Simulated assay, not measured.
Amino acid sequence: MPVAETWLLPDGVADILPTQAHTIESLRRRLLDTFAVRGYALVYTPFIEYVESLLTTNNVGGGNNHDLDLVTFKLIDQLTGRLMGVRADITPQVARIDAHVHPIEGVARYCYAATVLHTRPQELSASRTPLQLGAELFGYAGLAADLEMIDLMLTILADAGLTQNLHLDLGHVAVFRALAAIAGFSAEQEQVLSNIYQRKSIPELKEFCQNIAHGNDFLVLGRLGHDLSALAAQLSPEARQNVDVQNALDQLATTLAHVQTHWPQVDVSVDATELRSYHYHTGLVFAVYAPNLAVPLAKGGRYDGVGQAFGRARPATGFSCDLYMLTGYLTQEEQIVVAAPAGREASLQTAIAQARSAGHVVVQALSFGKTTNALEIDHRATHTLVQVDKVWQIVKLES
């Protein structure tokens, strides 16, 4: 390879330079503290493990998670000959911990922040190495766990400085799944109709529903998925009496009221045809969007039974976000970098220690003779440490 190309990185992979890295790490620490004081225990998961673990789901749709399979890099373990994968999502790993590695009784709360790797960008101009931060709650099947997760997700975004013009989208995959069961759909029919809903294509929906049982229920869902009262009124009697449909619509209504009451600054809407990760999620799903951004800032939902393959199926709900995306919305704070002269005098060292205790970056010259040019001590210097009347003072550099 020519020398001129040795520094190039693959598409979707980038270095994080000092200023951005400082912002990301500061945010990561702050958000992990937010998790910690709410009882979410931090875990570190391996970046590589056997694909059987990485691709395990709750098997609602049968088999492994196809979407996750497509974005997972795979390689052969030189020790065992088995197929391994580099994690593309941390949620299955945390489910493995809850089910087998750390199987505590009752409710368990975990959080994480680590890099994942995707075979290709998930969205236009997205990174293939997102810094995934998230939380998972295991062991509670009630709606209260989902509400806690939504509150935590919105709190995390607020802590990151994202408080204005947010939109929360709510959905519930159980409505579609129950209607599909009533209609006696095959797995292939479910997948086709799920794709139509995700494309929001009413013409395709009308054509699909012409010759199927309970076709009008699916047309109603497509037209009125955002209006819970109208949707419930226009479903067929069999669909309205279905317990799963009733529970799903009740949960959507309760969640909508909760967000409107406790997060009035957040615009919220319902879309009962939101079937993102349909074969993975089992109940309420949610995503937060910012203006002029097609991909969500954060997303999550319920995925009961995810630990089944590990021998312990448990109710579960969670959310995740990409820290790199969040920091793109932050205003860069001006960092004070103080250039200090060389020397071990007690007064100088005390002044340096006090400045560092105040949160300032202090860089001391490595040798004498560099004390008059702060930028030679550190190119980022904004201030210098000078002695005036035997007192060390921090002085701002002139522009």
Rank of each mutant, 00 (worst) to 15 (best):
G343T: 10
G61F: 01
I156W: 03
Q132G: 05
T19K: 14
P130H: 05
D271L: 05
G61E: 04
A135H: 05
V116C: 10
L375N: 04
A213V: 10
Q387A: 06
W263E: 07
A181L: 11
I48F: 10
F138A: 01
R380K: 10
S194N: 04
V306R: 00
T282N: 06
G39E: 06
L224W: 12
N58V: 02
A113G: 05
P315V: 02
F47V: 08
F185A: 06
A239M: 06
A95Q: 02
A99W: 01
S236N: 00
G161D: 03
D250E: 15
G328D: 08
T372V: 11
S320K: 02
T72E: 04
V220T: 14
H360F: 13
T19Q: 14
F47S: 14
R29S: 13
N165E: 14
P121C: 08
S277C: 06
G134A: 02
M325D: 14
S53L: 09
G222S: 05
L75R: 00
V285G: 00
F286N: 11
L117Y: 15
I104M: 07
Y140Q: 14
S277N: 12
G300W: 00
S320V: 04
L68Y: 01
V220D: 04
Y197F: 14
L205Y: 12
P291Y: 09
Q164W: 03
R120Q: 12
D151L: 01
E333T: 12
L252D: 14
A114D: 15
A298D: 07
A36P: 00
L170F: 08
V361A: 11
A113M: 02
T155L: 13
T350D: 12
G61M: 03
T255C: 12
R302Y: 01
W392Y: 15
L179I: 11
R380S: 07
G81K: 13
T350A: 13
L166T: 01
S127K: 05
A248P: 10
A253P: 00
I377R: 10
L375S: 07
L32V: 12
L147D: 03
V37R: 13
Y329A: 05
A99R: 00
L205N: 06
E398T: 09
L249H: 08
L70Q: 12
L166Y: 03
I377P: 10
V361T: 14
Y40V: 02
W7C: 04
T384R: 14
S201Y: 06
L170H: 03
P10Y: 07
L75G: 02
R302W: 00
Q132E: 15
D389R: 13
G307N: 09
R302V: 06
H360T: 09
S320T: 08
R120H: 09
S186A: 12
N373E: 10
T331V: 09
V266E: 04
Y278F: 15
P341V: 13
V86F: 14
A14Q: 11
N195I: 05
T72Y: 03
F73Y: 15
R109M: 01
R344T: 12
K299S: 09
I336K: 15
A353K: 11
D15G: 04
A351V: 06
E376G: 01
Y197T: 10
W263S: 09
D389Q: 15
L166P: 02
S127Q: 06
V94R: 01
I352C: 07
P103V: 07
